[in-house]
């Protein structure tokens, strides 16, 4: 409850400040977090070190600080959502690869937008929900519960549905895809611990296999997308060529193959903007873990 109250107090302030002042305030808080949230910082630094092995300790620290700074700004964007107007947000977003989105939408089987915990999705998702198609976020439940409910309420007003990573949530995701909606999910962290172990930056990591399974079962196109923050605090959304998964008969191999394709694409995205990959949690497994072929398949669709 204290965490939620603290968040709402900060949100109250940021909502009332001009955008740039809100960022300044958030960066100030981010600096404290960088100094005192050592666990988060070391987890982030470990992830960054795997992604960018060529960096020395000093460079790594610098990227980590820029990452905290951008993460704080992303939080400021989130805090401004209750008063954000789609018309004001629109000039902030530049989109590249619209033709890829259109190609994916041509199939009319919905689009599974695959990304990583990167940049600020608030702006892109809000504009898409208002102009392209209804958007659903399939994401982990935040703690505490009040914060999660606030988050869902705030997204709802912009037409974004937020579904939890549960069976009930998955059922709704399938309905949403059947109705040709866009479902956004991040695959760089396996919250439920049920994904498959694949190579991620050359190290084993558990990656959710749900998107690949859905794509193979339902024919849903997978669209890798990244949203970057630019230095002037506008946003650049890039849609990469969609992946149309074709089943070959070997379900496990297919799932692994599609997941690896996604991971490969997202590795490039992270390498290009490591200071915007906001993942202060340990995701990499010890090197020998790659041998275990698949997870329990909680979200795997069965025929």
């Amino acid at each position: 409850m204290i965490r939620y109250r603290g968040f709402r107090a900060m949100q109250w302030v940021v909502e009332r400040l001009p955008r740039q002042w809100g960022y300044a305030f958030a960066i100030m808080v981010g600096r404290f977090a960088f100094l005192f949230a050592r666990q988060a910082r070391s987890a982030l630094e470990e992830n960054l070190q795997v992604a960018l092995p060529e960096l020395d300790r000093r460079q790594l620290r610098r990227v980590a600080w820029r990452n905290f700074r951008n993460h704080a700004k992303a939080y400021a964007d989130l805090m401004r959502l209750p008063v954000a107007r789609v018309e004001d947000l629109r000039p902030l977003l530049r989109v590249e690869g619209t033709e890829n989105l259109e190609r994916a939408r041509e199939r009319h089987r919905g689009v599974l937008v695959i990304s990583v915990h990167m940049g600020s999705w608030e702006v892109a998702a809000a504009i898409w929900a208002a102009t392209v198609a209804p958007v659903t976020l399939f994401a982990e439940e935040l703690e505490p519960r009040e914060l999660y409910e606030w988050y869902r309420r705030t997204r709802a007003r912009l037409g974004i549905s937020v579904l939890p990573l549960t069976r009930a949530g998955l059922r709704q995701v399938l309905v949403a895809l059947e109705q040709d909606e866009m479902v956004i999910t991040a695959i760089d962290r396996d919250i439920t611990g049920t994904g498959i172990v694949v190579e991620f930056f050359g190290r084993p990591a558990r990656i959710p296999d749900g998107p690949a399974a859905i794509a193979l079962r339902k024919g849903t196109p997978l669209l890798p997308v990244a949203v970057y923050r630019l230095p002037d605090d506008t946003f650049h959304a890039v849609g990469y060529p969609p992946i149309f998964a074709e089943p070959t008969g070997d379900r496990l191999a297919d799932v692994r193959c599609v997941t690896c394709q996604l991971v490969e694409r997202l590795e490039q995205v992270i390498r290009a903007h490591p200071d915007q990959w906001h993942l202060p949690h340990r995701i990499f497994l010890p090197p020998q873990s790659l041998e275990s072929p698949v997870g329990s398949g909680r979200f795997t669709l069965r025929r």
Binding site: R85, A129, A130, L158
Partner: peptide, 17 residues
């Protein structure tokens, strides 16, 4: 009343939903 959703100002494009 935890079940009250105060959505705030809803954009025109989203209101029908």
């Amino acid at each position: 009343l935890e079940d009250v959703v105060l959505a705030g100002y809803v954009p025109d494009q989203v209101l029908p939903r």
